[in-house]
Every structure is written in C-alpha cells, then in structure tokens.
Design a protein around this nucleic acid. Structure first.
Ligand SMILES: NC(=O)c1ccc[n+]([C@@H]2O[C@H](COP(=O)([O-])OP(=O)(O)OC[C@H]3O[C@@H](n4cnc5c(N)ncnc54)[C@H](O)[C@@H]3O)[C@@H](O)[C@H]2O)c1
Ligand SMILES: NC(=O)c1ccc[n+]([C@@H]2O[C@H](COP(=O)([O-])OP(=O)(O)OC[C@H]3O[C@@H](n4cnc5c(N)ncnc54)[C@H](O)[C@@H]3O)[C@@H](O)[C@H]2O)c1
Lengths: 216, 216
DNA sequence: CCCATAAAGATCTAATTGTATCGATTGACG
DNA sequence: CGTCAATCGATACAATTAGATCTTTATGGG
C-alpha cells in the first residue's frame, strides 16, 4: 500500500479533474485566491462530497472556512495528471477529423502538443495545416524513436488503423488515442484510449427513448 | 417495477452496445448466421459474462450451442437503442469540428441524420458542406419546431454555447450533444450529453504517468 | 478573547458494476 | 440413439464508486 508513490484514481474521478481545472483557471483569472469544493460543485452541478474527495486525491490540502489556495489546487491537479510538462504527440491521419484536432487550441492547456502530423496521401503530404507541415507516414516510426514521442493520435481511415497502430508501437509510442471505430490489438504495455462517438450517441439515444416512453 | 415497459440499462452497458452492433453487422456480412457471446467477447477483448449480460438486457434470446440468431440480436440492439428509425438532428456551428462531423458517414448507421446545419457567420451561411446547405442560426428554433427535431448537436464557439443551447430548447429540442467545453445550464427535461475530450486525455495522461513511474 | 460557522477530512452505508459459479438446454458427433 | 461439449441464463459474490454523516479545524465577527 504505502510503497506506491503516486496514488491511482478511478476513471470517473480522472474524467472530472479537467472540469475542475478549467473552472479553477477561470476563477483565478477573476482574481479569486481560494476555491472551496462547495462552490466548485455548485458551478459544475456536482455533489460537493464528490468534488472534495476528488480534490483530496491530488494531495492538495485545503483550509477550513476558506477552501483550497488557488495556486496550490491548480498545481496539484496538473501535477497529478502529468500536465505540468507538456508532452509531445504525433497525429496520424490528416483528414477532416485530424484537421479539426490539429486546429484545436485547447490541447495546449492540457499538456499536449502536436509535435508533428502524418498522412499517406500525396496530396496532403507537404501541406501546412494550422502551422504544422504534414509529413510522410513512412518517416513516422523513425521520428518517433528519435524524438522519444510517447503519445500517438489515430485519425486515419478505419481499415488501416491497426497497421498504423503497429507502426506507432514500432516507433516506441506507449499510448494511443484511438478515434477510429477499429478495435485495436496491442501489446499489454501500450495504453489504449478509445474515443467512441457511437457510445456517447447510444447513451443519448437510450435516454431519449426512455424519456419519450415516460411522457409521450 | 413491472409497469415499466422498456428496461433501463447502465451507462457502461449502453456504451458497449454499439461495439457489439458494429461487430455483429460485420459478421453478418461475412455470412454468419449465429453469434455467440463468447466470440463477440473474444473479438472485442471483453469478458464473455459481461457480453452475455449486456445482450440479455436487450431482450434477445439465444440458443445454447449456437448463440444468438444474427438478425434477431442486431434487431434487438437497434430496437433497444432506438436506432431502428433514424432521428433527425440539427448541427449548430459549422467550424472545423462541425465540418468533420457533417462529413462523417458513420452516424447514419447509428440512427442519426443531419436534417440541417446552422451557423452565424455570413461567410459560412449558404455554403454547401457535405451536401448540406448551411442555414442562418436565426431560423433554427422555428425550423426545429416545425420539423419536430429532438436532437441538437453543439459545435459552436465555447463562449456562445449557452445562448445557442437556449435557442435549441426554445425550438423544442429535447437532447443536446455538447462538444464544447462549456458547462450548460438546462431545464430538467432536456437531456445533456457532453463530449469531453479533455476527460479522455486526462485518463490517458494519468495512466501514462502511472506506467512511467512503475518502470522508468 | 471567545464563539459561531463554513469548510475540510474521516468513516460508513448503499448502489452500481464487474466477476465468478452453477445448472439447464440443445445441437453435434460418434 | 446416447453422450459430450458448448452456450445461455440465473444467481451469488466482490470491488468500486457515489452518497451521507459526523468530527475537526481554523477563521472572522463580536
Ligand atoms: N469525421 C468525423 O467526425 C469522425 C467521427 C468519429 C470517428 N471518425 C473516425 O476517424 C477516422 C478519420 O475520419 P475522417 O472523417 O477524418 O476521415 P478522412 O477520410 O477525412 O481522413 C482519413 C485520413 O487518413 C489518411 N490515411 C489513410 N491511410 C493512411 C495511412 N496508411 N497512413 C496515414 N494516413 C492515412 C487519409 O489520407 C486521410 O487524410 C475514421 O476512422 C473515422 O471513422 C471520424
Ligand atoms: N476542433 C476540435 O478539435 C475541438 C475539439 C474539442 C472541442 N472542440 C470545441 O468545439 C467547438 C467548436 O470548435 P471548432 O474548432 O470547430 O471551432 P471553430 O471556431 O472552427 O467553429 C466554431 C463555429 O461556430 C460558429 N458560431 C459562432 N457563434 C455562433 C452562433 N452564435 N450561432 C451559430 N454559430 C456560431 C462560428 O461561425 C464557427 O463556424 C469549440 O467550443 C471547441 O472548444 C473542438
């Protein structure tokens, strides 16, 4: 128990932390010096107890009556998520989705920087997209090794997703953020994060169906 | 208990159902007539027991030794999710993300059709994006009412997300799929589904951090 | 200087989800 | 035609997570 340096948190907690972080940064900009779990909870529509427990896991200590010192709590969350030092990532597949992601400014605030983008389409290779020149996919594994890139973002056509994932792993990439609907087969030591739009849609559809049948 | 016609499922189950559906459709194309929970589980890297329980909730009945009849199980999942009749949806905010979503073919297989797209930018209004003409946002509430659209997809600039959501609700929209980082405040009867990229990234980052500290 | 109070922090309980076990059924095969 | 093996389906068990209660602490007002 005690030999583990860094506490490990449950997935629901991890998913809420970025929401706290975003709100806290905004509150800091407004000049607030302390943030209590209570106001954070109210602002985000969550239970105060959940918020307090989530914040506790990051190691931050709050002061009764005041809450958590703004700088400390922000630092603690960033530290806990590993967002203090921005990580380099490769994006592969500069189609419409890849295009959107490359242009999204929000990632830099979450410790992620696009070190390079790759594609296999000759029409796309060499083009500059949102300030990044698109490189040839063939160079990817070699470059990943040289730059010690650990995160790969997959936005290629579904049918080639496994091949590209293999190439990423060959290049030493240790975590793959998979936006394709393909179920990837990877070694144990590689972390997979699937971004499944269909799943979210399923939750929404089902809730809508339940609501509709309740009061038609 | 028994007066509820349709069973309600937990979120994790709902999120897995689309994965089953996609795989089952592919198996059907390959000419398979039955699908057992075991092979589905193996294919998707899940526990067979979980798959069986998930499939059971849809009401489908399987046959020992064979599995579930392909047509029945597919039908049962679609029915359960409300994907048998495609629903019309409005997409608001045809920026880079909205552009990508409009061009995504996958949604039609998940019971969702973009009835129309809207924006406020005069440079975008009137343009045709992936076969859809972009309309003026001012027309949205009125059109939503007339077409009885129940689903709204939010891909506008974060700062105007609440305003646009209000307009959607004014138009009678009952479920909002929110791709912006804004925490929306909506009446109880409106269903909110937030698509939070930062949350997924947090899970990935944290796992990477844990892995790295385990074997550096 | 003390008291009322808001908020953190610890401990417990309940619900949800995942995991395991066991029997029942049915088609395949010898 | 009978045995076998695979699979469903139900039930029981365990772990995780959400939610609730209670105590402690420190601050700000009187
Ligand atoms: N567009 C969306 O909104 C959306 C939503 C959810 C999921 N997805 C998934 O994301 C993926 C990409 O979607 P998209 O709409 O951007 O498709 P797209 O066709 O626009 O883009 C795919 C890109 O991948 C590139 N590519 C193909 N093979 C490659 C290879 N071997 N190496 C490198 N690059 C290669 C293509 O050149 C193209 O630029 C798809 O799997 C899709 O299912 C897209
Ligand atoms: N691009 C991404 O990859 C990405 C990822 C995650 C989240 N998001 C979020 O999605 C949203 C859209 O991102 P984007 O990159 O497409 O931004 P964008 O600026 O490219 O697009 C925003 C669009 O919204 C339109 N718009 C602005 N105000 C409007 C209004 N009042 N009514 C109707 N339309 C209006 C703009 O004209 C523009 O076309 C943002 O909130 C962003 O934070 C984007």
């Amino acid at each position: 128990m005690s030999q583990l340096e860094r506490k490990t948190a449950g997935v629901p907690t991890l998913k809420r932390l970025p929401l706290y972080l975003r709100l806290l940064r905004k509150m800091k900009e407004n000049g607030e010096e302390y943030a209590s779990g209570t106001v954070v909870a109210k602002e985000l529509g969550l239970d105060p107890i959940v918020v307090r427990k989530d914040l506790a896991i990051t190691g931050a200590v709050g002061r009764p009556r005041l809450g958590f010192p703004m700088d400390e709590i922000i630092e603690a969350i960033e530290e806990f998520l590993g967002w203090t030092n921005t990580s380099d990532a490769f994006l592969v597949g500069v189609g419409s989705l890849g295009h959107a992601l490359l242009g999204y400014q929000g990632f830099e605030q979450h410790g992620l920087r696009f070190a390079a983008a790759f594609d296999s389409d000759p029409d796309v290779i060499g083009k500059t997209v949102h300030g990044k020149t698109v490189l040839n996919i063939d160079q990817m594994p070699e470059l990943a090794k040289r730059m010690h890139v650990r995160i790969g973002i997959l936005t290629v056509t579904a049918s080639v997703a496994q091949d590209v994932a293999n190439a990423m792993i060959e290049g030493g990439i240790r975590a793959i953020w998979n936006f394709t609907p393909t179920t990837l087969d990877v070694p144990d030591h590689v972390i997979l994060q699937r971004e499944e739009l269909a799943s979210s849609l399923a939750v929404l559809s089902h809730r809508l169906l339940i609501e509709s049948s309740r009061q038609p």
